[in-house]
């Protein structure tokens, strides 16, 4: 089987010491009728070659906005990037022109979405859509591009790929469509793959297949993977490091084993205790009270304090910074040591 041919000189971006991506102090606002929603408030993440970073959060936490900002597909307006930098191999994407960013999107950083059906164009055959990537970015002719598309479809384990290149998206099952989207995303051999809730719409047996495939492809190509999800189970299975987001900021960052064994932020602690586990019987569910804050009217102090069982006076007045609790672990809580020690 031939793999996708890549001209090595075409890669003008080379990671330094394996560091692919550095997002620094990212601020994003949305201008809505209700006022200014501060969707991201100083988000810092980094990603190395071959590692998996999970960004964990509930709806409205800013996890998808982070992904869209890095990818450069945020709708501006209503969104507005008000500060920060996104360095890809040392170069700030936010300072680049649209032309230059287009050259990054696809060959360098690519993305898969939750809803494969709406991410694929319904009026073109899937093979044609994959081949398009090669024609536009690699300048291959029609039949070569289609050949490459077939190889990719085989790579993502679509049965009978050669016969199905001419099929349309609706003729595939949800899992197969997600495989096609993965094929498109990895077509140009990107260094960074962002997966935004890639298995949320899928059944559990299919989810296992897709996550397995993603892991395999990542190892094969040494991609950096950013997994955006709300599913603590999936994260535990694949992530190396986790950033937990709440109300547009990162509240905790650590290696995956540390967080599950011993969370250092009350929100993470609450989340872990609130999910029923398949391997537990007679488990009592802890429910975090209340609701996430409205981003247009953030409470003063720590954004989590109205729902926090550990909140004290300082929490309603001072917003805690994301600080190191013990080496390698960061938490944005005034009492993070207390949380960490149970």
């Amino acid at each position: 089987m031939t793999t996708v041919t890549t001209d090595p000189s075409a890669k003008q971006y080379r990671p330094e010491n394996g560091r692919l991506l550095d997002v620094e102090e990212l601020h994003v606002e949305f201008h809505t009728q209700e006022g200014v929603a501060r969707a991201l408030n100083g988000v810092n993440i980094y990603l190395d070659q071959g590692e998996t970073l999970a960004i964990l959060g509930e709806s409205g936490s800013g996890k998808s906005v982070t992904a869209q900002t890095v990818m450069g597909i945020l709708d501006i307006p209503p969104a507005k990037i008000t500060g920060g930098a996104i360095r890809y191999c040392g170069q700030d994407l936010l300072q680049m022109g649209e032309e230059q960013r287009r050259e990054i999107r696809g060959p360098e950083i690519s993305m898969i979405f939750q809803d494969a059906l709406s991410a694929l164009n319904p009026v073109f055959p899937v093979g044609w859509q994959i081949a398009e990537m090669f024609r536009v970015h690699r300048g291959l002719n029609k039949s070569d591009a289609l050949d490459q598309a077939v190889h990719l479809m085989e790579r993502v384990q679509i049965p009978g790929a050669r016969d199905r290149v001419k099929a349309y998206p609706h003729q595939f099952s949800g899992g197969m469509r997600q495989r096609i989207m993965i094929a498109m995303a990895i077509a140009l051999d990107p260094a960074v793959l962002i997966a935004d809730e890639p298995t949320t719409a899928l059944d559990v047996t299919v989810q296992a297949q897709i996550m397995g495939l993603l892991k395999e492809l990542q190892e094969e190509r040494q991609m950096g993977l950013i997994l955006i999800t709300h599913d603590l189970g999936v994260v535990a299975d694949v992530a190396d490091r986790i950033s937990v987001m709440y109300a547009g900021r990162i509240v905790e960052k650590a290696a995956v084993h540390d967080i599950y064994a011993n969370p250092a932020h009350p929100y993470t602690e609450g989340l872990l205790a609130s999910i029923p586990r398949l391997d537990r019987k007679g488990q009592e569910l802890y429910a975090i009270g209340g609701l996430p804050p409205n981003l247009t009217r953030m409470p003063p102090g720590c954004p989590f304090h109205p729902r926090c069982g550990r909140a004290r006076d300082i929490c309603s007045s001072d917003d805690p910074d994301l600080l190191e609790v013990v080496p390698g672990r960061l938490s944005a809580c005034h009492f993070s040591e207390e949380v960490l020690n149970g």
Binding site: G290, G309, D313
Partner: peptide
């Protein structure tokens, strides 16, 4: 605490002034 915090409105506060404030915020958000 887990029993304590099962309900939407019922957040365990540390003192009474806190509770008033917490309720206020929750209502505003709800």
């Amino acid at each position: 605490t887990s029993r304590h915090v099962t309900d939407g409105e019922d957040v365990a506060p540390t003192d009474d002034s806190q509770r008033a404030m917490v309720d206020e915020t929750l209502r505003a958000e709800g």
